[in-house]
């Protein structure tokens, strides 16, 4: 292959990527500009802000206030718990032989079919009877429970890619199956856990449906409820809405940047490599 051809191909690749990058970035640029506009300027969508109108951020912070910390208090443990439950369920399913394991796996996976809107009312009763209505712990429980199908699916696949020889060798050495899981398998699976952590952080951080159904006060309301407040009813406060959105995206981005190295290795099972 000639050098010129290779160069032309690289140039083409770059061009396509840049075009896509512009398409991906344009709405975000508009959102960012909007977050700096004063109310009269908002009537012109594509104009530049005449000055940086920080009041939108101030309004966003005032409104988000405690809810931002609620979101962190909900998301961090819920991500950890949901990954753990996925690993706990995925482990036996990856190693069990026979049809009972397959049946349980199939059953758990069918949970992925269920649209969450249909569970709302029974869910409300459950959570209320457990005394967990409007609590952060209630949100942990719900996010963990509804993560069971996907996290099990994800972790089972990951564990299945870990060479079985490692498992058998450990058992021969007298290691109990439970000990193998905690001491050997989990530590060797950090990349898979990290990949799942990114996906779960995004899903839990952005949840609105469970939050609206199961929380009602500052004690437990996450930031998505406040953000949707800016966007709802008759009026939409675009300035603070965009400011709040941009701020609220930061933690998920941080999680992504933090875990992305492992993500590449972990998503498809690479512990053995």
């Amino acid at each position: 292959m000639s050098n010129a051809l290779a160069q032309r191909q690289t140039a083409l690749t770059r061009t396509i990527l840049i075009v896509f990058a512009i398409i991906f970035a344009a709405p975000l640029v508009v959102a960012t500009l909007t977050s700096f506009k004063s109310p009269p300027e908002l009537t012109r969508v594509l104009s530049l802000p005449s000055e940086l109108y920080w009041q939108n951020y101030q309004a966003a912070f005032e409104r988000m206030g405690r809810s931002f910390f609620n979101s962190i208090a909900i998301t961090v443990p819920a991500v950890a718990l949901s990954i753990l439950i996925g690993a706990v369920a995925g482990y036996p399913l990856a190693y069990m032989r026979g049809s009972s394991g397959k049946l349980v796996y199939f059953l758990l996976l069918t949970g992925m079919l269920v649209p969450f809107q249909i569970v709302q009312i029974p869910l409300f009763f459950l959570i209320q009877r457990l005394g967990l209505y409007d609590t952060i712990a209630g949100m942990w429980l719900v996010h963990t429970a509804y993560a069971v199908p996907f996290c099990t699916f994800f972790m089972r696949n990951f564990f299945a890619s870990v060479p079985r020889s490692m498992y058998e060798a450990a058992l021969i050495d007298g290691c109990s199956p439970a000990r193998y899981f905690w001491k050997l398998l989990l530590p060797a699976s950090t990349s898979g856990l990290a990949a799942l952590a990114i996906i779960q952080s995004r899903a839990i951080w952005n949840d609105l449906l469970f939050a609206i159904t199961l929380t009602s006060s500052d004690a437990a309301r996450p930031v998505t409820v406040e953000i949707s407040g800016f966007a709802s009813s008759l009026q939409v406060e675009y300035g603070p809405l965009m400011a709040a959105t941009l701020v609220s995206v930061l933690p998920v981005m941080a999680a992504y940047l933090l875990f992305q190295k492992s993500f590449v290795r972990g998503l498809l099972g690479g512990a053995g490599k």
């Binding site: 005394g131 209505y133 952060i136 712990a137 942990w140 004690a219 009813s233 009026q235």
Partner: peptide, 25 residues
């Protein structure tokens, strides 16, 4: 533990629910 740690409700506070979420409303 988490269950017992949270969920406290002030007795004499009464809620008024509404959907005036923004602006002049």
């Amino acid at each position: 533990g988490a269950i017992t740690a949270t969920s406290a409700y002030a007795q004499d506070t009464y809620e008024i629910w509404h959907y005036y979420a923004a602006g002049s409303e």
